[in-house]
Amino acid sequence: MERDELAAWLRLLETPQVGRESARKLLAAFGSAQSVIDASVGARREVVALGPALALATAPDTLAALIAATAEWLAADADETRAVVTLGDPLYPAALLNIADPPLLLYLQGRVELLQAPSVAIVGSRNPTHQGTDNAHAFAAHLSRAGWPVVSGMALGIDGAAHEGALEGSAGTVAVVGTGLDRVYPRRHLDLAHRITRQGLMVSEYSLGTPALPPNFPLRNRIIAGLARGTLVVEAALQSGSLITARLASEAGREVFAIPGSIHSPQSRGCHALIKRGAKLVENAQDILEELQPGIAPAAAPAEPTRNTDPLLQALGYEPVSLDALGARTGWSATELNTRLLELELGGQVARLPGQLFQRIGHS
């Protein structure tokens, strides 16, 4: 993109009082960002309200610095692709054209070709159970190895586990973030963000320097849902933002998948609500592939693991359980239980949960 064109787009999108709806109407009427800026106030007033029509007559005080910073960012690293893609550009993802509110401009960093690839979104709780984290990682790794990039929002919890798993496969991952691409939020994911820029793709509709503002994250969910052929919810409470993503995916005509869990776990209730409303219950990644790729033969199933006969693991089951309940099931003393639980915890087979609860991890 030429600097003058970039300047016109940034002026249109970063001018106060000009929201996404007004910008879209102006672009439809005038054909390009530069034509919108060049039009008279009266001509713009025929398309939008007086406020945005007048606001565009004067460039924001911060515009020159933003243009310079964006141009510098685009040219900063010759070893990695950075781009700004606008609605109508050949690189703009066709999948987003079918959503209700397609972003007008996207900042990209990394493997830009992933923007056009058929993908699956994986979303869920920021405070998942250990089993939820393992599931997100395993599903994402399987999908990526099968050639499906995994889209998520780089939040803590399920999102981060999904990105990590997807990086283990060749298809990679797409992180749609709610800040400018020159910032990483949460900071705990700084290393993950750097790996995604090398092996996957970072995407944002927010200009450089945009901090982590609460309203931006629900908005970025529409891009996550819009990019993907289907959205998998791994764990979610009833009020989770992941359910917003699932709803947006359904409204866009995409598939919605959910992993069931314990009826006693708050983190499973959102998934159960989705299943009641028609989401497909999935138990493994192959269930998703069969839905999105009908007629494709399933991958060879792994050998059936030897049944674990550890009596404490059998007593634990796969739902959170208290020490008292384990004592009742096994007849063991609290001392014996604590000793053996610590061994299993150190061995990665048991997780210690808040409230003095324990949960078996995986299906060992």
Rank of each mutant, 00 (worst) to 15 (best):
Q116I: 09
Q116N: 13
Q116V: 10
A117M: 10
P118M: 04
P118S: 06
P118L: 03
P118F: 02
S119M: 06
S119K: 02
S119E: 10
A121S: 14
A121F: 03
A121V: 11
I122A: 13
I122W: 04
I122D: 15
V123G: 13
S125C: 08
S125A: 12
R126G: 14
N127D: 14
P128T: 00
P128S: 04
P128M: 01
T129S: 08
T129D: 04
T129V: 00
H130L: 12
H130Y: 05
H130I: 09
Q131W: 06
G132D: 14
G132L: 12
T133E: 15
T133C: 06
N135L: 12
N135R: 06
A136E: 13
A138G: 10
A138Y: 03
F139D: 13
A140I: 06
A141I: 09
H142G: 10
H142V: 05
L143V: 03
S144A: 13
S144C: 09
R145I: 10
G147K: 01
G147H: 00
W148H: 11
W148I: 12
W148R: 10
P149C: 08
P149F: 01
P149A: 04
V150C: 06
V150M: 05
V151Y: 02
S152P: 14
G153Y: 01
M154P: 05
A155H: 01
A155K: 00
A155Y: 01
L156P: 08
L156G: 09
G157L: 04
G157H: 02
I158Y: 01
I158C: 13
D159F: 03
D159S: 08
D159V: 05
G160A: 08
G160F: 00
